[in-house]
């Protein structure tokens, strides 16, 4: 058999083909990571009759009406005030009757005993409230809790909460400062 030299393939256009594919994927790529505020819904209740009674001093009521106006603890307020108010409410005030009750509890993950506030932030919105406003309020409350977590974390480990790597520490901080936001069933307070 006569040996025939394999003809050399011209690879000069290889780059062009690769470029074409590359540009296609560049255009179709969506690099956005999904971000958002994570919340846990309460499990459904069987009957609405046995509502858990919570002492008045333990609840910070936040209401949003259909015109996106806020009522914080019975007084009209602004979103910018909400964070300070929430932090103030959730911190421990020894001997002050107007602030929520607290009790000392051992947190195993951190190995310390800590006063835990029994306060709950109750968030209630109208059916006509805009989602924008709702998220802003949720965001402010989340930022209040995050700030408290940061503070505790700095105090204990000298690191911010977001910089913690140890799972146990993160779990402990979360246990020491649970996000206590309760969402009431909506009402038609202001109508449409």
């Amino acid at each position: 058999m006569a040996k025939r030299a394999a003809p050399e393939i011209n690879a000069g256009s290889m780059a062009d083909i690769a470029f074409l594919l590359l540009i296609f994927f560049l255009v179709t790529t969506t690099m956005d990571v999904d971000t958002g505020i994570t919340r846990k819904l309460p499990p459904p209740v069987e009957n609405n009759d046995d509502d858990i009674d919570v002492k008045d001093r333990n609840v910070l009521k936040v209401l949003i009406n259909s015109h996106d106006r806020l009522l914080i603890d019975g007084k009209p307020g602004d979103v910018s005030m909400l964070k300070q108010k929430a932090i103030d409410f959730m911190s421990i005030h020894p001997g002050d009757e107007t602030y929520p009750e607290y009790e000392s509890r051992l947190i195993e993950e951190l190995g310390i005993e800590r006063d835990m506030s029994k306060g709950i932030i109750s968030l209630k919105n109208d059916r006509g409230t805009s989602y924008d406003m709702y998220i802003r309020v949720q965001n402010e409350l989340a930022s209040a809790f995050n700030e408290m977590k940061d503070e505790l974390s700095l105090q204990l480990f000298g690191l911010k909460y977001s910089q913690l790597i140890d799972e146990k520490k993160i779990k402990g901080i979360n246990k020491a400062l649970p996000v206590r936001i309760s969402e009431a069933e909506p009402e038609d307070i202001g109508g449409k």
Binding site: G36, R39, K40, L41, P43, P44, D126, R127, G128, P186
Partner: peptide, 24 residues
Amino acid sequence: KMGIVTDVKQELRKAGALKINYST
């Protein structure tokens, strides 16, 4: 409006899908 969002949330509760994320 929050009305429709709340309805959805109530349905999710009934369905047992309790972990939610408000995408922002």
